[in-house]
């Protein structure tokens, strides 16, 4: 068997347990007197004996020619294959009894020598560099400062983008509001254009052009020339007509003060044909049978035309006789 080696055992420990003999040039010679010495041995199975005993024995360093047996009081503590620090008791000549002091295994060695543990770890690490790398790849790594910095940058960019999105949403809402107003204006413009085109045959080409131009540049209110054209003409008791009434059906309501009638296009069930419709209830407000023309205006609040059928003090437009 291969004799146990001590290697770079701590010199102080070696001296304490009498292991310093190896470093004193005694490795090749037999120890003259073993009694009381402490040494490191590995117990092995004894050669077969006639009496059948099989207590482990250990060959003594440095020559391993002599062997000792475990002291009878400690036989149950020792097994074959274990390495122990033992005290050698010599009785007579050539009879050695080994008193086991403590078992030397990896744990005890490491416990005894923190420095040694460090050296072993370093050696293991150097010899198993690839294994270490493979393991290192599997261990979660703390983010590097560069990654942390990138993360912070990304977070700040995200916040900026969120702010930008909020701003854009607000702008979108604002634009939708403007769009609705513009659509209302566009409808008004188209209406004015339509009226201008319808009155064009009865007017000069220049006037028709001015109508169209005015219609194109119209803002909240239609051009004054066209406003003059926006009238509701009563042709019979409850029958009215207007060039502005271009839709097929209207919803008609009177105000509670009976000064106005509101005609909302594309709602309600009052049919309108060729700009003519029945304003039921008008004769109750205006009992005269003579044809009358009422001024009319587009009211965005109601989404319809407001015709001024009464004579309230607050009426913006004055009714005119046809």
């Amino acid at each position: 068997m291969t004799p146990p080696t001590i290697g770079d055992l701590n010199p102080e420990v070696a001296k304490k347990y009498g292991l310093d003999v190896y470093q004193a040039g005694m490795l090749t010679e037999e120890v003259s007197r073993w009694d009381g010495r402490v040494t490191m041995v590995t117990f092995v199975a004894p050669p077969p004996r006639e009496d059948g005993k099989s207590d482990p024995i250990a060959y003594l360093p440095p020559t391993y020619r002599k062997h000792g047996i475990v002291d009878r009081d400690h036989r149950n503590r020792v097994n074959v294959g274990e390495t122990w620090l033992v005290e050698v008791v010599e009785k007579g000549t050539g009879a050695f009894f080994l008193i086991p002091l403590f078992r030397l295994d990896l744990k005890s060695l490491l416990d005894l020598q923190p420095e040694r543990m460090k050296q072993l770890a370093e050696q293991l690490a150097s010899k198993n560099l690839e294994l270490g790398k493979a393991l290192a790849d599997k261990i979660p790594k703390a983010p590097s400062p560069e990654v942390v910095k990138e993360l912070e940058t990304a977070r700040s960019q995200t916040n900026e983008l969120r702010t930008a999105i909020d701003t854009l949403r607000k702008e979108k809402t604002s634009l939708e509001t403007k769009l609705e107003h513009l659509e209302a204006q566009q409808y008004q413009s188209r209406l004015v254009t339509f009226i201008a085109q319808r009155v064009a045959p009865s007017t000069s080409a220049t006037k028709a052009g001015s109508h169209l131009q005015a219609a194109m540049t119209t803002s909240q209110q239609p051009p004054s020339e066209v406003v003059d054209e926006m009238t509701l003409r009563r042709v019979d008791q409850d029958i009215c007509e207007s060039k502005a009434l271009i839709h097929n059906a209207y919803e008609i309501h009177f105000t509670a003060d009976l000064y106005r009638v509101v005609l909302k296009p594309n709602r309600g069930g009052v049919p309108c044909k060729s700009g003519r419709l029945v304003v039921q209830g008008l004769s109750r407000v205006d009992s005269s049978t003579a044809p009358t023309t009422y001024n009319m205006a587009w009211d965005e609040r109601f989404g319809g035309f407001v015709a001024y059928i009464g004579q309230p003090s607050g009426t913006p437009l004055k009714a005119t006789e046809a």
Partner: peptide, 27 residues
Amino acid sequence: LQGTYDSKLVESADKFHIIDELPVLRP
């Protein structure tokens, strides 16, 4: 409607609508 409301109610509101001027009647 005109003549049916209390002035303190109108003061407490953020806006006041006079129903008389709204298109609400039908024959």
